[in-house]
């Protein structure tokens, strides 16, 4: 019962924050649309539809599609390691920036 109540409180906080975020984004977007800084969703949809209609009327003759390239597991894994490595690096920067000086200070304090 206690856990359920706590879970419901956390859910309520999530929902409350989600509501605040949605309302804030919509208000900011509304202000930006009314000031003419960005297009409204309806205008964008109309523009997109017009663009699609134009491209459909000018559609080139269908070209034979090339067969999809074979799946290369090695290249996929390398790509994963590269992009995930980048993210890990970004996480590691603040960790190193905080943990290393802190442990150095602690060691120096111990010595003195």
């Amino acid at each position: 019962m206690k856990t359920l109540t706590r879970g419901l409180i956390i859910l309520a906080v999530f929902v409350l924050l989600a509501g605040v975020v949605t309302v804030s984004v919509n208000v900011v977007a509304g202000v930006a649309v009314s000031m003419g800084l960005i297009d409204s969703p309806e205008e964008r949809a109309a523009e997109e539809a017009a663009r699609e209609a134009a491209s459909a009327s000018e559609a080139p003759e269908p070209v034979e599609r090339e067969a999809p390239e074979d799946f290369n597991l090695f290249a996929y894994v390398v790509q994963w390691i590269r992009s995930t490595g980048k993210n890990v690096f970004v996480v590691a920067i603040p960790v190193l920036a905080i943990v290393v000086p802190k442990s150095l200070m602690a060691r120096l304090r111990k010595r003195s």
Binding site: V25, N26, V28, A29, A32, V33, I38, D39, S40, P41, R44, N87, V90, V91, A92, I93, P94, V95, I98
Partner: peptide, 22 residues
């Protein structure tokens, strides 16, 4: 879909990486 959600998703995710580090 209102305007700005894609950019917001990108931006908040990048901020989350930094916050995760902290």
């Amino acid at each position: 879909l209102g305007p700005g959600w894609y950019k917001l998703h990108d931006l908040s995710t990048n901020v989350a990486l930094l916050l995760l580090g902290l």
